[in-house]
Design a protein around this nucleic acid. Structure first.
Lengths: 218, 218
DNA sequence: AACAGACTTGACCAACCAGTCAAGATTGTT
DNA sequence: AACAATCTTGACTGGTTGGTCAAGTCTGTT
C-alpha cells in the first residue's frame, strides 16, 4: 500500500532523475542535483529510494517494457513491408515522445551495458532472434527485398534513436529548426526503397543472401 | 621543443585517457584510473597536462580533423552515387578502426555537446551545409534518387557510428560473432537501393521534394 | 665528475560525494 | 484533542576526487 504523498514524491524523484541521469550518465549524476531538480532534500530522496543505484534501476525497469513492446507488436500475419514500416514509425514516435529515455538507454550501452547486460543477452536477444526468423521467412517468400534481418532491425534502432541521442548535434547544425523535421518522410522513403520486393511479379523469389540463412531454420 | 620522454609519456597518457573517457564519459572518468592505465602516477599526469579538462580537450582536438576529413573528400566532379557510397564506406571503416573515438564523441553529444558546441555550430555546420547543397544539385540533375540531403548525411553518421557506439549491445545480441559482420554489404545494399535514380533514362528528372529546395540556391 | 634542467612522486588539501541518523514536523484517524 | 504513523531535514561521516607542493631522482651535456 502506498500513500498519496509517496506516489507524488516517487514521481517527482523519477522525473527529476530521468532529466539528470539522461544528460549526465550514472556516475556524472549526483543525488544533490536530482534532489534540487525534484524540489526535495537529499535525505528525503533516500527515504523513498534505498540508493542512487535504486533510483537508476527503477528508471531502467520502467523503460524496458516500453522498449520491447513495439518489436513484439510486429504481426506475423500482417503485410511484411507494412509491418516493418509501422515498427519503424513507432520507434521514431518514441524518439520524439521519450528522448530522455532514449538517451538514458544510450548512456547505459555506451558505458558497456553494465546494468542491462542480463536483459539484453536474455529477453531482448530472444525476441530479436524470433523477429529475425520472421523477417527471414518473409524474405524467403519474396515478400520483402533480400536483406539481412538483424542489420535491418539494427538500422531501425539506429536511425530512429539517433534523432533523440544526437539531438544536441542536429540542433546546432540545423540552427533553430526542429531537429526531427523531415525525418518521417525521409525514413518512409528509405525503408520503402530498401524493402520493396523486385517488381517481378509472381514466381521465383531470388534466394536470400547467405547472411539470412542462419535464421531460416525457424 | 619536446623531449623523447615527453613524446612517449604524452602518448601513453592520451592512449589511456581515450580508453577511460570513451567508456566512462568525462565526469565518470578519474585521473587515478587514467594514471593507472597509463602506468604513471597521478601527479605525473598533471606534469604533462594542466588538468583533467586539458587531457579531454587534447583528445577532442585530435579527433575533430579526422572526423571532418571524409566529408571533405566527397568530390563534386565524381559520380554522385559512387561518391556517397565511398563516403559511407569510409565512415564505416572509421567506426571499425576508431570505435573509442566514436564513443568519446557520442558521450560528448549525449551530454549536450558542452565542449563541442562551437565546433559543431561553426566548422561542421558550414561543411555540412556545403555538402547538402552539392547533394541537392545532384538530385536536381536526376543523378540521385530524390532525397533530403541533410537526412541522408545524418543517416550515414547514424548507421556507421551505431556499430561502434552500441557495440556492447550488438555483441550481447549476437553472442560472440563479430558485431560488424555483414554491416558492409547491408549498408551497400541499403544505399544502393536508396540512391539509385529511377530507371527512366535521359530526360525529365522529377522535381526534387520541397525539403531539398533550401539547398538549391548554392 | 659535476651540474642544470627535466622528470617523478609521497604526502597532502579542500571540495565533493553517497549515505546515516536523530530529532522534529506533518498527516490521517479515533 | 490526542496519538501513531508517516514524512522531512540539518548536521554529520567516511571515502573519493582533482589538484598542489616540496623534495627527490634521472638525463644529457660539458
Amino acid at each position: 500500500m502506498s500513500t498519496r504523498i509517496q506516489r507524488r514524491n516517487r514521481g517527482l524523484i523519477l522525473e527529476a532523475a530521468l532529466d539528470v541521469f539522461s544528460s549526465r550518465g550514472f556516475r556524472g549524476a549526483t543525488l544533490d542535483e536530482i534532489a534540487r531538480a525534484a524540489g526535495l532534500s537529499k535525505p528525503n530522496l533516500l527515504y523513498y529510494f534505498d540508493s542512487k543505484e535504486a533510483i537508476h534501476r527503477a528508471l531502467l525497469d520502467d523503460l524496458l517494457e516500453t522498449w520491447l513492446e513495439p518489436l513484439r507488436t510486429i504481426d506475423p500475419q500482417g503485410d511484411p513491408q507494412a509491418e516493418i514500416m509501422a515498427y519503424m514509425r513507432r520507434k521514431l514516435q518514441m524518439a520524439r515522445d521519450f528522448p530522455r529515455e532514449s538517451r538514458l538507454f544510450a548512456n547505459e550501452i555506451l558505458q558497456g551495458a553494465p546494468r542491462l547486460g542480463d536483459f539484453i543477452a536474455g529477453e531482448l536477444r530472444t525476441l530479436v532472434e524470433d523477429r529475425c526468423q520472421l523477417i527471414a521467412r518473409w524474405v524467403a517468400q519474396g515478400r520483402l527485398a533480400p536483406i539481412d534481418p538483424l542489420h535491418l532491425v539494427l538500422s531501425i534502432w539506429s536511425l530512429t534513436q539517433h534523432y533523440a541521442d544526437f539531438d544536441a548535434q542536429i540542433r546546432l547544425i540545423r540552427g533553430g529548426t526542429d531537429p526531427m523535421a523531415g525525418a518521417d518522410s525521409f525514413l518512409d522513403t528509405l525503408y520503402t526503397r530498401l524493402l520493396s520486393p523486385p517488381a517481378a511479379v509472381g514466381g521465383d523469389p531470388a534466394a536470400p543472401p547467405s547472411s539470412c540463412a542462419k535464421y531460416s531454420g525457424g
